[in-house]
């Protein structure tokens, strides 16, 4: 197992590129969902303000 993780001496290269790419995929999901949520909240605020005035 330790031998596998060592990637014949290229552990830093292999694992950092995989970690970086997975972080990219996860973060873009988080950002996209956050953007949709904030757009909804913005629209709702506008809607509520119109109701008051």
């Amino acid at each position: 197992m330790a031998e596998y993780f060592a990637m014949s001496g290229y552990a830093a290269h292999v694992w950092s590129s995989f970690a970086l790419t997975l972080a990219l995929l996860v973060l873009n999901i988080v950002w996209a969902r956050r953007s949709l949520r904030s757009a909804r909240a913005e629209a709702r605020r506008r809607f509520e303000m119109e109701k008051v005035s």
Binding site: N28, A32, R33, S35, L36, E42, A43
Partner: peptide, 21 residues
């Protein structure tokens, strides 16, 4: 997944005054 989610957010921002929103 990313494109559709972000595009929905963009559409909502542009149309936030619309009656369908």
């Amino acid at each position: 997944v990313i494109m559709l989610t972000r595009a929905r957010a963009e559409v909502l921002r542009r149309e936030r005054g619309g009656s369908w929103v």
